[in-house]
């Protein structure tokens, strides 16, 4: 087997192990949280028997390992259990499967993340490469100063500034990104433009500076001097000689930022009233809706692991030492 394939399979296996460990930690840490869903719903005044009956109905009376096993089995078959909310003291069960709650929200989140990524990644690479090319010029300094400024402000502030300029004053984009399941594609793009732009401004600096630093770091290499002595023009030196060797650190930072776009955008979602996973999770935490919290957390963990795996694979296949062993 080619060593790269082996390494990729190895990483994939490790990713699964990590995900399993995360599920254990997640399940047990929620277990140790103070408070109880039964009491939270029924109120402090509820009779102990009522609470016990309610707990039994939800399966909360079973020993922890059994419940974990049930949950894990469900997860493996794509069933994340049912949400607790919708079950009231009345005894009626109007609860919905977590998958049903999470599904459309996740689609929204991924759509927004993709929008932001499609704008920010090429932009960051372009800015990073050109900043390296014109290092220490006015252009370089301006790009650095601007991106650093946008990353320095809290994201809600950036969001409100954009709303003020692009929505209130100029009315180019709507200030609310209230998409629904029926919203068609271009309408969706139009509605999510402002949140995507906000996220772009927040993450572009990080990626751009890593691109610039990774390239500049290589510019002192003897093989870059050799390229210069072979009469290679500056732009070609960067694109042909430096960039192919700089992918590993750049991709790591890109993966990190893409993961942030999926798991860390709750503030932006709130500002634009965007129905994403972040809001869902925050709501679930306030109502102690444990299955939803667990579902969201597992999705987040899987996102992180997948994106990092992806970054690892890119690092490996851009490293000729690993791709073409001796």
């Amino acid at each position: 087997m080619h060593p790269v394939v082996r390494t990729v399979l190895q990483r994939l296996g490790l990713g699964l192990v990590t995900l399993f460990v995360v599920s254990l930690i997640l399940f047990s840490s929620i277990e140790f949280l103070p408070g109880d869903f039964g009491e939270a719903v029924l109120g402090q005044a509820a009779l102990p028997e009522t609470v016990a009956a309610f707990r039994k109905e939800l399966g909360l009376d079973l020993p922890m390992h059994e419940r974990y096993w049930q949950w894990l089995k469900g997860m493996l078959t794509g069933d994340m259990g049912n949400s607790f909310s919708g079950r009231g003291a009345s005894g009626q069960d109007r609860s919905r499967p977590v998958v049903e709650l999470l599904g459309p929200r996740l689609a929204n989140t991924l759509f927004l993340a993709a929008m932001a990524a499609v704008i920010s990644v090429p932009l960051a690479l372009f800015l990073g490469i050109t900043a390296a090319l014109y290092r220490n010029s006015i252009y370089d300094r301006t790009v650095n100063a601007l991106t650093l400024t946008t990353i320095s402000f809290p994201e809600f502030f950036v969001a409100y500034c954009l709303i003020l300029i692009l929505s209130s004053f100029t009315k180019i984009f709507p200030s609310l990104a209230n998409v629904g399941p029926e919203t068609e594609f271009w309408e969706r793009v139009y509605l999510t433009a402002l949140p995507a732009l906000t996220l772009t401004l927040v993450i572009v600096a990080h990626m751009m500076r890593m691109t610039r630093a990774a390239i500049i770091n290589l510019m002192a290499s003897p093989y870059i001097e050799m390229a210069e002595l072979k009469g290679t023009p500056k732009a070609e030196i960067i694109l042909r000689h430096a960039l192919p060797n700089a992918w590993a650190p750049i991709v790591t930072v890109i993966a990190f930022n893409l993961a942030y776009l999926v798991v860390g955008v709750v503030v932006v979602e709130v500002v634009f009233v965007y129905p994403g996973v972040g809001q869902l999770m925050v709501d679930a935490v306030t109502t102690r809706d444990v299955p939803v919290v667990q579902g969201c957390a597992m999705v987040f963990a899987a996102t992180y692991i997948l994106l990092n795996l992806f970054a690892d694979i890119i690092s490996i296949i851009t490293n000729p030492r690993l791709l073409h062993p001796r």
Partner: peptide, 22 residues
């Protein structure tokens, strides 16, 4: 630049470092 690498060439001390690994 037009002269370099076409009419004047350079052979460096450390060949291992002077070749682009990619």
């Amino acid at each position: 630049r037009k002269l370099r690498g076409s009419r004047i060439a350079y052979v460096a001390q450390s060949a291992a470092a002077s070749f682009n690994p990619a």
